[in-house]
Design a protein around this nucleic acid. Structure first.
Lengths: 154, 154
DNA sequence: GTTGAAACCTCAGATCC
DNA sequence: GGATCTGAGGTTTCAAC
């Protein structure tokens, strides 16, 4: 999987605007439509492009709260780690769950409609989960940067 | 801005698949194409839909490292907070920067191609930034869940 | 093996009801 | 919200480099 300059341009442009038409995209990268479309399909099949998503505005849709939760478990046996991951995967308000090195085991990004809903989620579904030793939460005051994806040169 | 059941369906479907054609979308929500397109345009103009993005695979594109950095500043005066935000906004590897309540001032999500590149970024551009008191970093071992966006009923 | 040209067919967008 | 229409874009086929 080696990406040439045109592939990287395609990836960068589609990361910026996922609904760009193929003819626009082709023009921007200096190709005609058919070879451009073939490259896009190839990038999708190779897994370089995982999907396309509309970015919704949380606040407009009623999700005014974003919280980061640092979770430590009592047991770090693989089966216990996996069980916790499975548990949070089923909670729609938990959008991200990353296992970390160091003192804390997981960091979670959680969204909620308001503080009350978050407290309810925290106490009844997170702190109360099996094997959870401690949960430290931090409310997001404001978000200065929130770019999905990764840097792409080209 | 009140969203009815069809609006929420549209939002949910476009969050799942941002390249769905309007005719597909219309069929799924039980409308014909023109009114469906009018709703989508309205949702875009109201700001409920902020944009569309291809989700790229970090590992395939050479970004094998994801790190969370907890940053504390020496001064929390608004001008100093804003200066720090401006500083990290210009670093492409810093994808997210959220101001938090509590002991730490900011949490950053950072991607890097490898550990060496991350260490370089950390020491030369983050720890060395003006007004930074401490930076604690945690490497992501694995990511159990990473859903962009928010829960949408419908 | 990848590009480009042409054909076809579906979709987006505008208009009107 | 739905029906109709037109022009534009997506997609396939095939020839050429």
């Amino acid at each position: 999987m080696a990406f040439d300059r045109i592939d990287r341009q395609i990836l960068r442009l589609l990361q910026e605007d996922g609904r760009m038409t193929n003819v626009d995209l082709a023009e921007r990268v200096g190709l005609t439509a058919p070879p451009c479309l073939r490259r896009v399909r190839a990038l999708e099949e190779e897994g370089a492009i995982r999907g396309y998503h509309a970015a919704l505005d949380p606040v407009t849709l009623g999700y005014s709260i974003t919280v980061f939760a640092m979770v430590s478990l009592r047991s770090q046996a693989e089966s216990d780690l996996a069980a916790f991951e499975e548990h949070v995967r089923a909670i729609p308000e938990v959008r991200e769950c990353h296992m970390l090195n160091g003192e804390i085991d997981f960091i979670l990004k959680i969204v909620a409609t308001d503080l009350r809903a978050f407290q309810e989620l925290l106490t009844s579904r997170l702190t109360a989960a099996p094997n959870v030793a401690s949960v430290k939460t931090s409310l997001t005051i404001r978000t200065a940067k929130n770019d999905p994806g990764i840097p792409v040169a080209g």
